[in-house]
Nucleic acid binder design. Structure first.
Lengths: 242, 242
DNA sequence: AAGTGGTCTAGACCACAGC
DNA sequence: CTGTGGTCTAGACCACTTT
C-alpha cells in the first residue's frame, strides 16, 4: 500500500481512505466501475475488513463512492453526485426544475477576461471556451447562462459541446476528460435586467433578476468552470439545511 | 428499550438511533448535557457496544450529538449546529459575516397574516409575535429583517426578546422553550427596494435587493419561525457544496 | 485513577444481485 | 450458487479529559 503521509499517528482507515481517493482521482477506477470488494481491499492494505469498511464508508459518505449490497462498490457518476444540488438549486415558482430543456446560442474559443481569470484562478488571456445558452421551463425561457471552461484542462470541449449539446455538461466532462466535479461554489446577487436579458428572456428593462455566479471544482480542487446564470423572477433560489 | 416501530426487520442500530432521537426531542437530555456512555447505553438497549456506537454516530453525523473523546457525548447546542449555515449564508462583499451587530426596531403581538399562516402551516389569525430588526456590518445597516414567531409554541417570547435582544434567537429558543431548530428552508428572490428599505437601509428607491424568506423547523418538523430578510446589494448569498 | 470515545481486530450470520 | 455489502457481536488497546 501507498502511504502518502509522514505522520505515522494517522489512523489506518484514514490513510487508506486518502489513498483510495488518490486512486479514484488518478482514474484507476472510472465512474460506474466496480472497485475490488471489501475483503480484497482489506488484504491489499493489510488491515482488517472492519477497517477497510470504515475507509470505504468515508468516501461513500462524501458521495464519491456508491455501495450496493450484493453488487459491490462503484465510483459515483454525476447523476449520483447531482444529489448534492438537492440542497440548493434554482427552481421555478411551481417547484419545477428550471432546466427542462436547453437551447444553445453559441460556442466560441476565447482568451480569459480579467473576471474569468480571477474566478478560475488562471492567468489573464489564458485559452478558454465560452458557451452561451438558455434554459426553458414549461416552454418559457427562464435562465440565461454564460459558461467559461478551461481549455487547458478540457482540450477540444468546444467541439464536443457543439456536437452533443449535452443536457448535463458535468457528465460529458467525466466521460471525455475523466474530470469529476466534486465541489461547487455559488454566489447569488440581485441585478437589473440588461439589454441581453431583455432580448433573450423577454424581460422588461430594469426588472430585478437573480444572478448566480458558479465556480465548479474537480476532485483535485482545480477550478474547472465559471458560470453566470441570470434568471427571470419566476425562478427563485431554494436552499435547505437538514 | 422502547421499540417505536412495527417493522421487526429494521436494524437494531437504527431503532436505537430513532429512540435516542425521540429522547432528545422529549428533552430528557438538554443541549450541552452529557448522555450516558457507550457502555451504559449498550447495556440499556441490550446491544453490543459496536451497535450502540453506530446508533450514536448516526445522530452525531446529523450534528445533533457531539462526541468528545475523554469527555463524553452531549446534545449539540445551537453554536454547534450553526455550522449548518456554513454551506449557505448571507455575507458581505468582503466575505464578512453580515450579522456583526443587531438593532431592534420593535416587538409586537399580532394575528397571523395569510402569508405568515401559509409559511408556518398555521391557521390565519393565529397568535404570533413579530420582530423587526436590522443588521449592521462595519457600522453600516445592511439587512432588514421581519421575523414571525409562533406564539403558541413560544409563549411570551416577545417579552424575552424585548428584554434580551439576543444576537442568536435560536439559542434563546433552546434555553427557554427547549425547542431545537434543526432544519431551515430558504427561498431567495430579487426585488426592488421599497419605502421601508429606502428609509431604514438608506437605499435608492428602485434599487435591486436580495430577499430571503426563511422557514425554520424544530426537531419534530414543526415550523417555528418565518423570517423575511432584505439585503443591500453589498451583501450576497453564498453557497457551497463540498 | 477512572471513565470516555477512537481505533483495530476477527469472526458470524444475513439480504441481496448477478450469473 | 457465489460474492457482495449490511448487521451484530466481543474483545483489546489507546488517547484523552476529568476528578
Amino acid at each position: 500500500m501507498r502511504d502518502d503521509n509522514a505522520a505515522v499517528t494517522k489512523p489506518l482507515h484514514q490513510k487508506m481512505s486518502e489513498d483510495l481517493l488518490r486512486r479514484v482521482q488518478s482514474g484507476e477506477w472510472r465512474p460506474g466501475e466496480l472497485l475490488p470488494g471489501e475483503n480484497a481491499l482489506a488484504l491489499e492494505y493489510s488491515v482488517s475488513v472492519g477497517t477497510a469498511r470504515k475507509a470505504i464508508e468515508e468516501l461513500a459518505a462524501d458521495r464519491l463512492l456508491v455501495r450496493q449490497r450484493g453488487r459491490g462498490t462503484t465510483v459515483a457518476n454525476h447523476s449520483y453526485r447531482q444529489g448534492l444540488f438537492h440542497y440548493y438549486r434554482l427552481m421555478s415558482k411551481d417547484g419545477l426544475p428550471v432546466n427542462q430543456e436547453t437551447v444553445y446560442l453559441g460556442v466560441t474559443s476565447a482568451r480569459a477576461s480579467a473576471d474569468e481569470a480571477r474566478a478560475l484562478g488562471i492567468k489573464r488571456a489564458a485559452p478558454v471556451t465560452r458557451v452561451r445558452r438558455f434554459r426553458l421551463c414549461q416552454k418559457q425561457p427562464i435562465v440565461l447562462e454564460h459558461l467559461t471552461l478551461r481549455e487547458e484542462l478540457l482540450p477540444g470541449i468546444g467541439a464536443l459541446v457543439d456536437a452533443a449539446r449535452p443536457e448535463v455538461l458535468y457528465s460529458l466532462m467525466e466521460r471525455e476528460f475523466h474530470i469529476i466535479i466534486s465541489k461547487v461554489e455559488e454566489k447569488v446577487t440581485a441585478v437589473l435586467a440588461g439589454a441581453e436579458d431583455t432580448q433573450i428572456l423577454n424581460i422588461a428593462a430594469g426588472a430585478p433578476m437573480l444572478q448566480i455566479e458558479r465556480v465548479a471544482f474537480d476532485l483535485k480542487g482545480r477550478a474547472i468552470e465559471f458560470r453566470i446564470m441570470r434568471a427571470r423572477n419566476e425562478a427563485h433560489y431554494f436552499s435547505e439545511v437538514p
